[in-house]
């Protein structure tokens, strides 16, 4: 997977190389955590700068934060419904912001300037561990949402509208996190690879359209992930009209 037949002096592609840290006998991917801390730091800096003096008349960064808040609120309210969206807005919003800033950070920050002993920095979402973690959190979230709102009546959802749906709905519980994680992982990794390959072949100008496409894809992927997460939660808390 890793070695490419060409060895040119100015650019090389590294796929599947990781900077391993050993924490208490476990291996973790250091480059993922480094870039995710940068992402989280950027998010927190923005949030702290914007909420330092909240006022009734918004000014400066508060406008941006309120815009983001309203956008996420609309997303959550549309998918989850008027009754339950307040509980899940922070989760959906955090997913969106984390994925969005990760994706754009991976595309916009010149990580190549920082040399690591092994592997390279990039979007945290280009690592399968991150996306599976996020997808499993979504699974837990919708199970928790359904069970906490409806108790064991939640499992009626598996036999509605007919019991024939039971095997499909069970399979869905596995395909949901799988598709969520692989969609995000694949898109972001593919975008980074395309840009890297183009930059490897033609270092000037030619990768630019792919980079812009990558920014677009990154934003769309964050929106898709957050929307699907909200939709699954909404499906779990949805009350059938009897």
């Amino acid at each position: 997977m890793v070695p490419l037949p060409l060895f040119l002096p100015f650019a090389e592609l590294e796929v599947g190389q990781h900077l391993y840290w050993h924490v208490g006998g476990f291996q973790i991917h250091g480059q993922v955590f480094l870039s995710s801390w940068l992402v989280i730091g950027a998010l927190l800096a923005l949030v702290v700068a914007g909420t330092r003096n909240l006022g009734r008349d918004p000014r400066g960064v508060q406008n941006l934060l309120e815009f983001i808040w309203a956008y996420l609120r609309d997303l959550a309210r549309e998918q989850i419904g008027e009754k339950a969206y307040r509980d899940w807005l922070p989760f959906i919003g955090t997913l969106f912001l984390f994925i969005f800033v990760s994706n754009w950070g991976g595309a916009l920050v010149p990580w190549k300037l920082i040399h690591l002993p092994s592997g390279e920095l990039g979007a945290p979402t280009a690592d399968i561990n991150t996306t599976i973690a996020l997808a499993l959190l979504v699974s837990l979230a919708y199970f928790y949402a359904g069970l906490s709102r409806k108790g064991f009546r939640y499992f009626e959802y598996y036999v509605e509208p007919t019991p024939i749906m039971l095997p499909f709905k069970i399979v869905e519980d596995f395909t949901k996190p799988l598709s969520l994680s692989f969609r995000l992982f694949g898109n972001i990794l593919a975008d980074e690879l395309v840009v890297a390959v183009l930059a490897f072949l033609v270092p000037l100008v030619v990768p630019l359209p792919a980079m812009f496409l990558g920014l677009f894809t990154s934003a769309i992927q964050a929106l898709i992930f957050a929307t699907l997460a909200a939709y699954y939660i909404g499906e779990a808390v949805h009350e059938e009209q009897h």
């Binding site: 796929v15 599947g16 291996q27 973790i28 955590f33 995710s36 991150t130 973690a133 996020l134 499993l136």
Partner: peptide, 22 residues
Amino acid sequence: EGGLFDLDATLPLMAVQVVLLT
């Protein structure tokens, strides 16, 4: 040592990190 689908302790730690971030 490595690979695209190299699952390790990064996964739970990242999940914890995202929950904390939430």
